[in-house]
């Protein structure tokens, strides 16, 4: 049986786990091709208008797989950590797919719910295995292999590896020896790792001579420690990652600038971005920019803003806070340019 996995949303966080599981059980898997204009257009036309870009893209990837595979794997991530949730759209994803796309092959729905206990992880895989009609013994073996692979992936990320380097091993992703600085990108992994919708921001920044850190590079322990300062427990796992790593970088010794990459109408980002922006404005005043992408984003405008942001970083190194937007510097009398 040929199982299709859409290359979108939680794929970028959990692909080692899923791929290993299916491979170990001897299934052929087909991963939809990286996002293209065509996939985006398909997604936009199938999905309800009000959904956010990543969800539309997911629709596009599923539509791309229709007709090519015998079953499509659709994860329903309810919770990935006890007492926490993910975005409601992740929970309702299978329903959205079922009601929006026609002529679907059977869906393999992966109900992943660790809201009560992390041990429930196993049940999710058993449930998935039973949908495929497998024996408990073979599921058990594949499951163990799958979570160990997942663990390795997470350790690699925490040690500072760029997720894109793991996803695209053929390209050159060496550590930059003499980088001008480090930019922290606060964004969901499904934005940063999808090179089409993030307009390949990581590569662009690296080409300008800056190194990049992403949210996955901050360890879970640091995130938890930082969030203790919040007056109320944050209950979104992804939101925690964004806010926790943002607070870590706001301590000021790891990055020289922060870029918040968000998709239009993302509910969680709208709150996290607001908090980080306010914390930054009160304390450190690190260079900070918000980039919002949606299905209409123009490449040229995006590039211009990114270049302007990086230029600003360099000028700041040269003349501190005192540069005027035009002509001579107000304080030192030197030219700002």
């Amino acid at each position: 049986m040929n199982i299709g996995i859409p290359r979108a949303l939680s794929y970028f966080d959990y692909f080692p786990m899923w791929q290993t599981f299916f491979n170990h059980l001897g299934f052929k898997i087909t991963i939809s091709s990286p996002t293209t204009k065509d996939i985006l257009n398909k997604g936009v036309s199938l999905c309800v208008d009000d959904a956010c870009l990543p969800v539309k893209i997911f629709h596009g990837h599923v539509a791309d797989l229709v007709g090519k595979v015998d079953a499509i794997f659709v994860p329903r991530l309810i919770s990935v950590s006890p007492g926490e949730f993910i975005c409601p759209k992740f929970i309702g994803l299978p329903e959205m797919i079922k009601n929006s796309i026609k002529n679907l092959p059977p869906l393999l729905i992966f109900n992943y719910n660790l809201h009560k206990d992390t041990e429930d992880k196993k049940n999710a895989f058993y449930d998935l295995g039973r949908q495929l009609g497998l024996s408990s013994r073979s599921i058990e073996k594949a499951y163990k292999e799958a979570i160990s692979r997942q663990y390795i992936y997470e350790v690699m990320l925490e040690s500072g590896q760029n997720p894109l380097a793991i996803l695209h091993p053929k390209e050159k992703w060496d550590k930059l020896d003499s980088c001008k600085g480090v930019i922290g990108i606060i964004a969901h992994s499904y934005l940063v790792c999808d090179r089409y919708i993030s307009m390949d921001i990581v590569r662009k920044i690296r080409n300008k001579g800056y190194d990049v850190r992403v949210v996955g590079n901050v360890s879970q322990k640091k995130i938890e420690d930082n969030l203790k300062a919040m007056p109320k427990r944050l209950f979104w796992s992804y939101g925690k990652k964004l806010l926790g790593s943002g607070m870590e970088w706001l301590k000021g010794n790891e990055v020289d600038g922060i870029i918040f990459l968000s998709s239009f109408a993302c509910g969680i980002d709208s709150f996290i971005e607001e908090l980080i922006q306010r914390f930054n404005a009160r304390k450190l005043k690190l260079p900070y920019a918000v980039f919002t992408v949606d299905e209409h984003s123009g490449q040229a405008g995006f590039d211009t803003r990114l270049e302007a942001f990086l230029d600003m970083l360099e000028w700041r190194d040269k003349s501190g806070y005192n540069f005027s937007s035009h002509g001579q510097d107000v304080y030192s009398g030197k030219s700002s340019f």
Partner: peptide, 18 residues
């Protein structure tokens, strides 16, 4: 009825046509 960007209602919105 939903306010723009309401996360749960968007899921409901996609089910209602069925």
């Amino acid at each position: 009825l939903l306010p723009f960007g309401c996360m749960p209602e968007i899921v409901a919105e996609s089910i209602l046509p069925t």
